[in-house]
């Protein structure tokens, strides 16, 4: 991309680098958070009234 000046060239390469960063991050952390506690979303409906009352 030799035809771009420094400002546009920087945007072009930063754009590609960020997309690559997203790909690398996604691959590395695809299944990395096994230890993370999965909060129980199924109880939301049941707890709705109580939580609403608690929170005002």
């Amino acid at each position: 991309m030799g035809t771009f000046d420094l400002g546009v060239g920087a945007a072009f390469w930063l754009m590609n680098a960020s997309a690559l960063l997203c790909v690398i991050y996604g691959v590395i952390y695809w299944n990395k958070d096994k230890e993370e506690k999965v909060l129980n979303t199924k109880s939301w409906e049941k707890d709705e009234a109580k939580m609403t009352k608690d929170l005002g």
Partner: peptide, 23 residues
């Protein structure tokens, strides 16, 4: 989504999707 893993995977898909759109 139910865990952080889903968000991590979405980073990959989202990054590729956006560069394919606006780029």
């Amino acid at each position: 989504v139910k865990s952080k893993n889903e968000l991590n995977r979405a980073v990959l898909i989202g990054g590729v999707f956006i560069i394919a759109m606006t780029g």
